[in-house]
Amino acid sequence: MKEFWDCFKNGIVGENPVLRLMIGLCSVLAVSVRLENCLFMGAAVIFVLTGSNLVISAIRNFVPNEVRIPIFIVVISTFTTIVDLVMKAYLPALSEALGVFIPLIVVNCIIMARAEAFASRKPVILTIADSLGMGVGYTLVIAAIGVVRELFGYGQFFYHQIFPSSYQGMMIMILPPGAFLLIGIYIALLNHFHRRDNL
């Protein structure tokens, strides 16, 4: 049980995929204008990550080493397509808002990296812990960016007006530069605290 917990925690704190390993950035920056988008993007990533790594871990002993990468790609793209089709059918507005970034989950480096580094070597239970941890770590970062961008960009929180309606909205937060700025500041903050802890 302790092992399970450690694997889970690793993705959130120790090796946070976005802030520490610098992977999976595209969707983090692109869809984080609205908090709602962030949560659904996070859910989609968690589903694909957990689902495909579960399968990869389950079949790891039958897969010849030479073709493991193509097989990973096939498994991951299957789960991505499922998410894409289901979202298009039942959540059309969100599917529109997230756009190409749902199909692009297939090349999200987090998933391939975890398949290669973890799922293809470890038993199913630990793989689930690792995938959930990584997915939650990803979702937390994207939500942390989304909350600031929505609040300052639109003056809203989950589409509810927080700031007085006379608030004009900081354009830069909605546009690409704001996303780059925020993630820069977040990593700097993380560096700052990390370094202080180590002293």
């Binding site: 610098m22 780059f180 700025l181 993630i183 820069g184 500041i185 990593i187 700097a188 903050l189 560096n191």
Partner: peptide, 9 residues
């Protein structure tokens, strides 16, 4: 603490 990735962003 801005050295490395932060300043790149």
């Amino acid at each position: 603490f801005y050295q490395g990735y932060p300043i790149v962003f």
